[in-house]
Nucleic acid binder design. Structure first.
Lengths: 115, 115
DNA sequence: GGGGTACTCAAGCATCTGCTTTATCAAGCG
DNA sequence: CGCTTGATAAAGCAGATGCTTGAGTACCCC
């Protein structure tokens, strides 16, 4: 079993979220759509740099873009965010359940020893 | 408001999860503790390389390590995974709620127009 | 058409990553 | 004691990433 499509999508999503500027863009887009210029405004970097960040987010599927006059409004894609959450949750849940079973098992052993 | 400690933690976590080998290690650790050698076995790379991946995961807080004889067993830290999930969920929920309100608003306008 | 606005493309550059190889170290065993 | 095992440290290298500047491109208004 090699590298799957799903792997590549997760790569792209987590890579996109690993940069503080891009995470900030995601947070700001959760408050509503915005253009590249609007998104670039608060950062101490060129609009081209922000445009590149947006491209990373777009290619990861975390955001999508429309066309309106000469602007390219960006919007969040909650389904992609949900996919990332699902992946993490599965590992977390599996481990936690394992811990619960272990505790139960230890409790059983303890009970047996006391009787 | 500059770069916070929380930002740095999220950086480390999402960076750690952006590599397929490291994600695979996380999945495998969700099934139980493992040593560096055990984790390295299935991959076509040196144990040193895997050791470096594990270090990235450890520094991100996603895993922790013990000492047992000459091994350094790795275990998942579900609390850190939960922190990553929480961050994503907040953005996703905010956007989704916004969409719901928008739909409600549009429905109200529609209703008003029909009457 | 000219000029401004919003944005993308492309090249260049410093830094970071992922991996290698070699060397080192600590723990356990003959 | 020497030898093996599990793991880390350090140095080096090809390729990726984040940013810059300069040059387009597409749209809109006068």
């Amino acid at each position: 079993m090699g590298i799957t499509i799903e792997d590549q999508r997760l790569d792209a999503m987590f890579t996109a979220l690993s940069d503080p500027t891009r995470r900030d863009i995601v947070v700001r887009l959760s408050a509503g759509e915005a253009t590249v210029k609007e998104l670039a405004e608060p950062y101490a970097m060129s609009m081209q740099a922000v445009s590149q960040h947006i491209r990373v987010l777009e290619r990861s599927g975390l955001i999508s873009r429309g066309r309106h006059r000469q602007t390219r409004p960006c919007r969040l894609e909650p389904a992609a965010l949900e996919a990332a959450v699902s992946w993490i949750e599965e590992s977390r849940r599996t481990w936690s359940e394992r811990m619960d079973r272990l505790e139960t098992h230890l409790a059983c052993l303890q009970k047996g020893a006391n009787q």
